[in-house]
Design a protein around this nucleic acid. Structure first.
Lengths: 230, 230
DNA sequence: CGCCGCACTGAACAAGTGTTTAATGTGTTG
DNA sequence: CAACACATTAAACACTTGTTCAGTGCGGCG
């Protein structure tokens, strides 16, 4: 009796909820808001999903499955392949990516599951490449796997800033094309021309504690990401 | 009008708000909640800041200034130096980092400002290093700068997953020490042992459009982050 | 037919929200 | 002292929230 595409009501509600949560966040998206998008009453949502939290759980599960399991979409491709897929069908995947971003920065069990799946996919990929002799030897493979996963996710989480910063409008194909070579270069040769920073850090880590003797502060002790300044 | 003597209370409210927003998110943190943390009434917050949005704006501005401007903290160090600083005084900076994460994934003008400042700091750092002959030639410096900024931010935004994935409890010093060498190695030599993927992508980008002729899908066209599978 | 089950609804509810109002204290100033 | 300014508050207000309730209508089945 429901008009338009006879898509089962439950699914319509779920999709509307995913869109609303992705767009405005879980707290800001109200049941009445979602209900209106789905063309139903708020009460019906509760009737079907028990509560707003129940709805959220179902959305979480659906997004995780769609992104990770379904059709083995990223089974062999890591976060990168996911993005490529997503780009191919932007209309359909955009809400999912937005939802995923919100998810990964929340602390729910579903978020942990999703991240673990992504990590596992990345690990599989890297292990294949290692077996093919494509990878340089890694001193701590777990760290490498996690880092590659993080780096693959960063452009999705920060897509707004990424696009704005490079003068594009969202994760357009043009933008991704522009990223390809520089990033792949980075993954292939690194950023630095020599071992200076690396050996400095290596030495600094040998010495147990205490600021180094030498000049300014060439490499106190630890050092997160883009290595360090002066 | 507003004398400097009423600063303490205002500051206490602001700090409580930052903590609450960081912990629970802007929507979920109520004025009464913040008021209780600061030991005042909800009405006083409105009296001082006009509205909840006014309070938010002031928090945004304060966080941006503290992280970016104040004491030229990251002026020469990029996102990395910021993290190092933050680690040195975790108690004090943790709420700021949490707040920053929330900010960067929201779309407010303050978030854009913050990201631009971080990008500018990264650019300065990289240009210094380039001048010192430490950097490999970059085909698109803007992309490199943005990417390095993104990669420096990723461990902060996803610190929960990063820590959990490596069996640590938050961004501890142990964890950062463990990250140092692998990441610096990555920044120095890259991940891959040869140019295979790079040249493949390079060739693929030459060809204007259309799926490649050959076998499966060795390198259709673009390719986001960790290069790709099979 | 009558009855059940169920998708579905509008209205009501209690709790919580940001904000307003009126009032109280307290310090400074003329 | 009185007069004012202002930080501060409890209480009330208007509104939104998630959820409950009491139904309505419709399809299948005896």
């Amino acid at each position: 009796m429901r008009s338009a595409s006879d898509a089962p009501t439950r699914d319509r509600i779920r999709d509307a909820a995913i869109a609303a949560f992705a767009e405005r966040g879980f707290d800001a998206a109200s049941l009445r808001d979602i209900a209106q998008r789905a063309g139903v009453s708020a009460a019906l949502i509760v009737h079907h999903f028990g509560s707003k939290d129940g709805l959220r759980e179902e959305c979480d599960a659906y997004v995780v499955q769609t992104l990770v399991t379904d059709k083995g979409r990223i089974a062999g491709g890591g976060a990168s392949a996911m993005m490529r897929e997503a780009l191919a069908d932007r209309q359909r995947y955009e809400p999912l990516l937005d939802y995923m971003s919100r998810m990964l920065t929340s602390d729910t069990a579903a978020a942990d599951d999703l991240f673990d799946s992504l990590t596992a996919a990345t690990r599989t990929l890297l292990e294949q490449q290692a077996a093919a002799g494509m990878l340089r030897p890694q001193s701590d493979m777990d760290v490498t796997v996690t880092a590659v996963t993080l780096y693959g996710l960063a452009p999705v989480l920060l897509r707004r800033q990424l696009a704005r910063s490079l003068g594009e409008d969202g994760l357009t194909e043009t933008l991704l094309r522009r990223l390809t070579l520089p990033l792949l270069e980075f993954y292939t040769h690194g950023l630095y021309a020599d071992d200076r920073l690396l050996t400095a850090a290596h030495d600094a880590l040998e010495r147990p504690i205490g600021p180094p003797s030498g000049k300014g502060d060439n490499e106190p002790y630890q050092d997160p990401d883009p290595p360090l300044a002066e």
